[in-house]
Design a protein around this nucleic acid. Structure first.
Lengths: 207, 207
DNA sequence: ACATAATGCGAGCGATGGCTCACAATTGTC
DNA sequence: GACAATTGTGAGCCATCGCTCGCATTATGT
């Protein structure tokens, strides 16, 4: 068998110029996803939007999937940054206060770049490589479980992994549905009400 | 403007023969979605699988989207049948028993044709026409709110629409994640545990 | 200045997919 | 049996898409 022609993405982006090209590509991809949706995001279209040629695109990314994955990664990093911060912040706080903060953060996180968030949630097939979203989810579950373990005395649950699953799933779903159904930012009042309810739901369950 | 050449899906499927064709198409679509995934479900491929020519396909459906929508509708009808039955059954039962039943039903519903359910959840872009899933969601919320209203005295919530949103969202998400993460059917034990937890979560919130 | 490497270009190839249309086969009607 | 309506056929048109490759442009080293 002939060895692969070796025309995969060029090695490193060593010069300054190419970093700019890479960034332009990712940002162009995000813009197209937002403005025109997933199926319109062809490699040719993305290259034009980025002010770059298709050839250059394939020098840095093996295909459309990789570009979209890069956008998703970028978005997830932003979200996880916020979430990790929150967990650090609440580590030594009592359950009620901690849960309230986490709910608020979940809503904030889902409100980051809401249009992009919506497209990612609604239009991107969760197939192939794009499963690394799962990694983030697992991290969130693990962090929550760790918090529960260090506050065992305030709780009455036996299986903390199960409890973490129930809490994280509920909080995430509530934030997700609330933000997506209201197309964009929620009013402060709605956020307060929702936070109260979700907190009662989860705290009542844990204690 | 020239009047549209009038080559849209042929009017009615009046004869017996055509009903069979239509059914074959929908079932073929479902089979392909399950076995090969969404992108492999081209109109040509579907027609072959159904033992029918592409031409016939376009006599009954305006395109691939419509076929997939038909499959989704079929699946959702099955689910809503079960859910409607459950709501009728619990109408006069106390909150604890009612919620427990609803949780069980949610799990059952998500376990109907799990492979198809997974494909629909993971691979189908929720775009365009496929938003009528929303209709079913609204129906579920409405039914739950109706139940809450007729049991107001057992509850302490003020805003019942909000309470319904919180409960339905949580139950649905728990059932969804549990079923999808465990690839297929859950063990009886897992189902019992999950039902207990979800029931405690929701009942604790409502009372 | 010159050579060499790194980066960028974009016409166009091959593949695939949605969809049409001219026609054939079947069914219903008298 | 004759005729019209209904239903079924499938080769192939056209558009699009992912991707390549030979070449142009720009940076780096000496």
């Amino acid at each position: 068998m002939a060895p692969k022609p070796l025309m995969n993405p060029r090695k490193g982006a060593s010069q300054e110029r190419s970093r700019a090209t890479v960034d332009a590509l990712v940002e162009a991809t995000a813009r197209i996803l937002i403005r025109e949706g997933f199926d319109k995001a062809s490699t040719n279209r993305i290259a034009v939007e980025a002010g770059v040629s298709v050839g250059s695109l394939y020098q840095y990314y093996p295909g459309k999937e990789a570009l979209v994955a890069a956008v998703i990664d970028r978005h997830n990093q932003e979200i996880m940054q916020v979430v990790r911060g929150a967990f650090a912040e609440i580590a030594s706080q009592p359950v009620e206060k901690a849960v309230r903060r986490l709910v608020a953060v979940a809503i904030e996180a889902h409100s980051i770049d809401p249009k992009l968030h919506r497209v990612l949630a609604e239009q991107i097939p969760r197939t192939g490589r794009l499963e690394n979203v799962e990694t983030f989810n697992r991290e969130a579950h693990a962090m929550f479980k760790a918090y529960l373990e260090s506050h065992r005395d305030e709780l009455r649950a036996a299986d903390l992994a199960l409890a973490a699953f129930v809490c994280v799933t509920s909080i995430e779903a509530l934030a997700h549905n609330a933000v997506l159904h209201s197309d964009g930012k929620l009013s402060d009042k709605t956020i307060r009400t929702l936070t109260d309810e979700a907190t009662r739901l989860v705290v009542g369950y844990l204690q």
